[in-house]
Simulated assay, not measured.
Amino acid sequence: MCILPVLTYGAQSWSLTEQQKSKLKICQRAMERSKIGVKRIDRVRNTTLRSITRVADVGEKTARLKSEWAGHVARMHPDRWAKIVTHWMPEGGRRRRGRPRRRWCDDLIVFAGQTWPEMAQDREMWKEKGEAFAQQWDTY
């Protein structure tokens, strides 16, 4: 009951790499094994663990939380800091050396294109997109 809330606390603001996604999944599986008393040496399949514990996948949950927050940010008043920071571009269009490799909105841009904030204005369509976004996040 508390596995997902612990793992996804603050997930709305994460910009996850593939390595970080993998570590989250490994941690979730370790927690599930601990919950039901199975050791790795017992060689129980992950699908079997998931069917026993009936806990949703952490990857899908984080993607769903991120898409919900993105829709909320897109519909915010233009003076709110979250919206300003999301659409901020540095002077000259380039960030300094040492910048983070991934930005928060990169996943959204890859999935829905540069116009994702306009798409998010329609709540129903964005909710459907969010479901698809969550499903594609868990494909690896």
Rank of each mutant, 00 (worst) to 15 (best):
R33T: 01
I84W: 05
G130I: 01
P5S: 14
A30I: 07
K127I: 10
T139N: 15
K66E: 02
D106L: 07
K66F: 01
D57Y: 07
D57L: 04
D138T: 15
D138V: 12
R123C: 06
Q135R: 13
R54F: 07
C2E: 12
S22P: 00
G113I: 12
R45C: 04
D79C: 10
M1H: 13
T115I: 12
K39W: 07
T139V: 15
R75A: 00
T48G: 05
Y140R: 15
V44E: 00
R50N: 11
T62R: 00
L108N: 05
K23V: 10
L16W: 01
A56H: 04
F133L: 03
T115D: 14
T62M: 13
R29P: 01
D106N: 08
A132E: 15
Q28Y: 03
S13N: 13
P100H: 13
S67I: 05
D122R: 10
W126G: 00
E118N: 11
S34P: 01
K21D: 14
R29E: 00
W14C: 04
Q136Y: 11
Q114D: 10
M125V: 10
K25P: 01
V58F: 02
Q121F: 05
L24Y: 01
E124L: 11
P117S: 11
R80I: 08
H87L: 13
I52E: 08
A70H: 05
V73Q: 00
R33Y: 00
R33C: 03
I52R: 13
Y140F: 13
G10D: 15
E32M: 07
R75P: 03
